[in-house]
Design a binder for these strands. Structure first.
Lengths: 216, 216
DNA sequence: TGTACATCAGTGAACGCGCGTTCACTGATGTAC
DNA sequence: TGTACATCAGTGAACGCGCGTTCACTGATGTAC
C-alpha cells in the first residue's frame, strides 16, 4: 500500500517526452561514441532514450532517415567548427584562412568522431534528402570559397584552383581518417593531433600557396 | 527413374572443395563489390561459395577472422599496386618515385574498392593478427622508405620528414576516400580518377619537394 | 597392392538472439464553440 | 470556464527474418604397415 502511495506521489515520467526527436539524435551519438556505428539500431537508440522501440517511427521514416538526420547535424557542426576556427585565426590573408579551415576540419573530425564516422557512409544514408544535401553543400562551400578567395588574391593560378581545392580537402580528410582509424598512431612522433593538423596545414599552405604566389 | 539415373551420371560436385579458403575470400570481395560491406555475413559468404553455412568455420575462427584475412590480402595487393606503379615510372629520382607511389595508392583504392573499404575498418578486424600487422606494415614501409630516400637526396629537410610522409599519405588516402564516397563527383571537372590522382600527386611533389629542395 | 584407421573437410539441424516494421491501442494535448 | 472531439505522441504485442555459433554426423583423403 505504502509502495503504491509512493509511486503515485513520485513524479511520473511524462507520457509525452517533449523533445524526443533531439533526444534520439543525441542517443545515436552516444551509442556510436561508446560502442561504435555497428551498434546503432532503432531499438538500441530507443532503449537509450528510454522510450518504447516503436517511438522513433513517429519522428523518422526508418533507420536511414534517423542516420541521415544525424549526419546532417554533423555537416552543420562541421561548418560551425570551421567557421569558429576561421574567426579564431582573426586573419585577413586568405592563405591564413585556408590554414584555419584545415585545422578546423581535423579538429571537428576528432572532437566529433561519432558524426565524422557516419557523414561519408552514404550507403547508410538517404543522400537525396534535401536537408542533408543543403548541409553538406554548405560545409563544402566554406572550403571552396576560401580557395577562390586565395585565387582572387593571386595565391593560386586559375588553372590550379580545382586541384588545390581537391588537394586541400583530401589532405585534411585523409589526415582525420588516418588519425581516427588508428593506423597513424605509433608511426609518428607528434602525438598531439591539433598540433599535427596545424603543422600539416601550414606545410601545405606554405608550399602550395605562399611559395608560389603569382601576384599580391 | 530417368531423372535419378541422370543425377547419378551427372558430375557430382566433389565433397571436398579443394581450395575453399581462397574461394571464401574471393566471395567476400564479390559480395562487397555487388552489395556492400553491410551484406557480408558468414552465411552469405558460404552461400556465394556454394558450401554449407558451417563450412567457413573450418578455415576461419569467426567472422572477424575472415574479414582480417581479406583485409590482409588487401594490404598485399596495395603493396603490389604501389610497386607496379613505381616500376612503371622507371624513375631514378626519388621525387618521381613518390609521385608514382601516390598514383599507385589511389589506383589501388579505386580498382579494389572492396578491399580498400575494409582495410581501415579496424572495428571489424582483429588488428593484432600477425599476418595482418606484417602486411600493413610492409605497405606503409613503401611510402615511408620513399620519403626517406627523398630526404637523403636533399628533397626534404630532416625536421620535415615526418610531416611530409604523413601529408603524402593523408593526401592520397583522403583523395581515394572522397572519390569512393562519391562526395567529390559533380564538384570537380576532372572526371578521370587516374588523371586526377596524377595531377594531385604531381602538384604535391612539385610544391612540397621539388620547389624546396635543400641540396641536390 | 591392399587394408585398417586416423584425420581432415565438409553437412545440416538446432540454438538463442536482436533486428525493422506493423498495428491496434491509449494517454496527453490543443482547439472550436 | 467547461466540454466535446480531433489530433498527436507514445505503448506493447506480434510478425517474419537472417544472423553467428555449436554439434553430432559423414564422406574423402592420407598414412602406416
Amino acid at each position: 500500500v505504502r509502495f503504491v502511495a509512493r509511486s503515485k506521489k513520485a513524479p511520473r515520467a511524462p507520457y509525452h517526452h517533449g523533445n524526443l526527436r533531439e533526444a534520439l539524435l543525441a542517443s545515436v551519438g552516444a551509442i556510436i561514441r561508446k560502442q561504435g556505428v555497428g551498434f546503432v539500431s532503432l531499438r538500441e537508440v530507443a532503449r537509450h532514450a528510454r522510450v518504447s522501440h516503436s517511438a522513433p517511427a513517429h519522428h523518422f521514416a526508418n533507420k536511414a532517415g534517423l542516420l541521415t538526420a544525424f549526419a546532417t547535424s554533423g555537416y552543420e557542426t562541421l561548418a560551425g567548427c570551421v567557421m569558429a576556427a576561421i574567426q579564431a585565426a582573426d586573419a585577413t590573408d586568405p592563405a591564413d584562412v585556408l590554414e584555419a579551415v584545415g585545422r578546423g576540419y581535423v579538429r571537428f573530425a576528432l572532437e566529433h568522431q561519432e558524426k565524422f564516422g557516419i557523414m561519408f557512409r552514404l550507403e547508410l544514408l538517404d543522400a537525396t534528402d534535401p536537408d542533408f544535401m543543403r548541409a553538406s553543400d554548405a560545409a563544402f562551400a566554406l572550403l571552396s570559397s576560401t580557395v577562390e578567395l586565395c585565387a582572387a588574391r593571386g595565391y593560386v593560378a586559375e588553372e590550379d584552383r580545382e586541384i588545390v581545392a581537391v588537394s586541400a580537402w583530401s589532405l585534411v580528410h585523409g589526415l582525420a581518417s588516418l588519425l581516427i582509424s588508428g593506423r597513424l598512431v605509433d608511426r609518428i612522433r607528434e602525438t598531439d593531433p591539433d598540433r599535427l593538423a596545424a603543422r600539416v596545414s601550414k606545410a601545405f599552405v606554405d608550399a602550395m600557396l605562399r611559395a608560389r604566389r603569382v601576384r599580391a
